[in-house]
């Protein structure tokens, strides 16, 4: 841990922000094309974020502000831990448990700030978001547990490196197909994409946790959302799709995976929150457990199939 690490970390944050925000802008265009629209400019997302930061804002007390800062701080710390194509600002700390629980700091901060606004819509949104999290995280964590058991490592970069150099069939998504499917479904839930987006339903509960944010608070939420998307997609990318040997490969794979998620979400209706829980605890949970048992008792998937 030296000064350079922090400089690298800062650069990673900057790079991730530019990359992910551009990608989000492009994906707005993709969604628009799905709906036979022309769509926003590719840099629209930047304009939105900077405009939000530029505006005045209203605050509902210190926890409203503190929660936002804590959320963005926690999420940015998590981004720094994410290994990108083998590069880490702080080597060795890319433990999957650390990342997924540090992510929770951000979520807790956001939930705290939202509930601190005193708006009941926000509380409803938070309740739904937490329920949603309980739904998607258990199957996903079981699959991740299986991976850790199989590869004796809980480091994202190590698991990613283990899949490289064997072609496309070396990816865990193909070695452990059931687990891969679970991971992709869980990623939809993590990203809050349809059909699992009932916690930010704009017309139903007035965008849930975001209801009271305006100005810089809202800008923070948008930046936070970009970072959170990056973390979530990166986790799945590294664990199941082999990460990337070079930064370009990583970015390309990332863009494909993220766009794929967007296309799925573009053609989906929305689950009610209890339906989402029921769904996750029926199909993906069963698949995750079957995958886990197969790996633990037969060892299939730890090595290549062929």
């Amino acid at each position: 841990m030296n000064v350079m690490s922090f400089v690298y970390g800062f650069l990673v944050l900057l790079g991730v922000f530019v990359f992910q925000t551009t990608l989000t802008g492009l994906n707005r265009k993709v969604t628009a094309r799905l709906q036979k629209r022309y769509g926003a400019r590719w840099y629209q997302q930047f304009l939105d974020i900077f405009k939000a930061l530029r505006k005045d804002s209203t605050s509902h007390g210190w926890v409203f502000d503190f929660g936002v800062i804590m959320a963005l701080g926690g999420i940015m710390a998590t981004v720094i831990f994410i290994p990108v194509a083998g590069f880490e600002a702080f080597p060795g700390l890319d433990n999957i448990f650390v990342i997924s629980y540090l992510l929770a700091v951000g979520m807790l901060g956001m939930a705290m700030s939202a509930a601190g606004s005193g708006n009941p819509w926000a509380s409803i949104g938070v309740a739904r978001a937490l329920t949603n999290m309980l739904a998607y995280d258990v199957p996903l964590m079981i699959v991740i547990f299986t991976l850790i058991f199989a590869f004796d490592s809980s480091s994202l970069s190590e698991i990613a490196a283990l899949q490289q150099g064997m072609g496309i069939l070396g990816w865990n998504a193909f070695r452990m197909p059931l687990g891969g499917i679970v991971a992709v479904i869980a990623l939809l839930g993590m990203l809050g994409k349809k059909p699992f987006d009932s916690f930010i339903a704009p017309t139903e509960i007035a965008s849930g946790p975001m209801v009271e944010y305006g100005g810089k608070h809202l800008g923070f939420m948008f930046i936070l959302h970009e970072f959170m998307t990056f973390i979530e997609v990166s986790i799945i990318l590294s664990l199941f799709f082999g990460g990337g040997a070079t930064i370009w490969e990583y970015m390309l794979k990332y863009a494909v995976l993220y766009t794929f998620m967007n296309i799925i979400s573009g053609v989906m209706p929305r689950f009610k929150i209890d339906q989402a829980v029921k769904y996750f605890y029926r199909v993906p949970l069963a698949m995750a457990i079957v995958q886990g048992l197969v790996v633990i008792f037969t060892g299939l998937g730890v090595t290549l199939w062929f």
Partner: peptide, 22 residues
């Protein structure tokens, strides 16, 4: 808003609450 005129290409969009809106 929808495909015929598509206001999103001008950067416009609906928001849920007055706090968020311009």
């Amino acid at each position: 808003m929808t495909s015929r005129y598509d206001m999103e290409r001008l950067g416009m969009g609906p928001m849920a609450t007055p706090r968020q809106a311009d």
